[in-house]
Design a protein around this nucleic acid. Structure first.
Lengths: 213, 213
DNA sequence: CAAGCATTTTAGAAAATACTTGAATATCTT
DNA sequence: AAGATATTCAAGTATTTTCTAAAATGCTTG
């Protein structure tokens, strides 16, 4: 085997993995799974595709070893297969957010449509004692991992549970990441009810990777 | 515009960038450009594709803003467009090296075919005074950036320039990265001539990113 | 073991896309 | 204008992707 053949084969192999990343639905699935394991049905529901389609995308991801699965009763739980998958997704996402004008524009419009919540970075606030971290993702995602000093109130329970929140602190909400709107929705709700609130720039994925480095 | 449409559009946008990465030839070009700017002809030559083909791949990369170009006389020099591109490539490469069995196997065979040089990490050796760092890439890549304490002798000049190397130290060679064979070839040559030599695990790309973090 | 639920597989068809080559064209320099 | 470098065009082939709908599988529970 010649040098050239080795190289071709190596780059070809990487391109194979990379192809698993180059589909919008699969990227959304990866982004979702970065927040904890999910069943096929949950994934299909949250990404608005059919169950059959979700299953097939998951198969593709599994073949490339980006996700793994385990069975529990009649459910099959899918999750990301290791930190390197998260890092790669984060790198691609950040690259796109910096380099792709259409992604930047859409994101900008998205945020405006959600009320343009003020955002702040974790690095700057994590030892600030006059803020209160609020995780507004579904409870199971909170259970799968969260900021150590955060409280959980899923955004759909927020209207009925505002009494649990301090009025003398700034509420800092966070959710899955830059493409997740839960934190923005929460901020809008909170501000409408007289709280001082903003959202974290980072999502759970970023916070996880931060804490590992 | 509905929430769903925003999301679809965002993930679609990222998938677009990702597609620029999902071709073996383009990955090899990126890996090459991580070591400094190159002309179309140089790229075509080193990746063993036609000039026309290289030009078209470069166009694709440029459209996705992964590379940029500048003109100097009759040459057009291409280079990577920012550190995030390098990080993304590194993340994908490392992911593949960890998760893809065929990539692992090929790499293993590749190294055996090159004499299985002993490798060592930069972190462990960088303040060791009894080693000598040798950059065996072409001179122009050395000029574009290198380890501060490294000496440059391109591997093809090595046979005639061994007198420049110390016999009382361990020579540690490095080149472009895990898919580059120059460092291994150099180690083989050096050992055959009675030197103590090994190669660095990391390549120039990794050393660059290391020094930035 | 039968029923029920969750998931996977299959098949198929439409659409889209990607890749490469070789020739022609463009852009600069000298 | 000649010469060098790079890009575009045209073309064909091949490949690939993606999704839906229906059937099949695998597991649990009564």
């Amino acid at each position: 085997m010649k040098k050239r053949d080795f190289k071709d084969s190596l780059y070809e192999g990487i391109a194979g993995i990379t192809k698993a990343f180059s589909n919008a639905n699969r990227l959304e699935i990866i982004d979702l799974l970065a927040n904890g394991e999910k069943t096929v049905e949950q994934i299909a529901l949250q990404t608005a595709i059919s169950i059959s389609n979700a299953s097939q995308h998951l198969k593709a991801l599994k073949t490339s070893r980006l996700v793994k699965s385990r069975r529990d009763g009649q459910f099959i739980w899918y999750s990301l297969n290791g930190v390197k998958v998260m890092s790669a997704w984060q790198a691609l996402r950040d690259l796109a957010m910096e380099h792709a004008p259409d992604v930047q524009n859409t994101l900008q419009q998205f945020r405006v449509s959600l009320g343009n919540a003020q955002s702040v970075s974790f690095q700057r606030e994590y030892d600030n004692t006059s803020v209160f971290f609020l995780d507004v993702r579904p409870v199971d995602e909170f259970a799968a991992g969260h900021l150590p000093n955060a409280q959980s109130i899923p955004v759909d329970e927020l209207p009925s549970r505002m009494a649990e929140l301090p009025r003398d602190k700034t509420i800092i909400t966070y959710c899955r990441g830059p493409f997740c709107s839960l934190a923005d929705e929460a901020v809008q709700l909170l501000i409408a009810n007289g709280f001082k609130a903003m959202r974290l720039e980072e999502g759970f994925l970023d916070l996880t990777l931060l804490s590992r480095s």
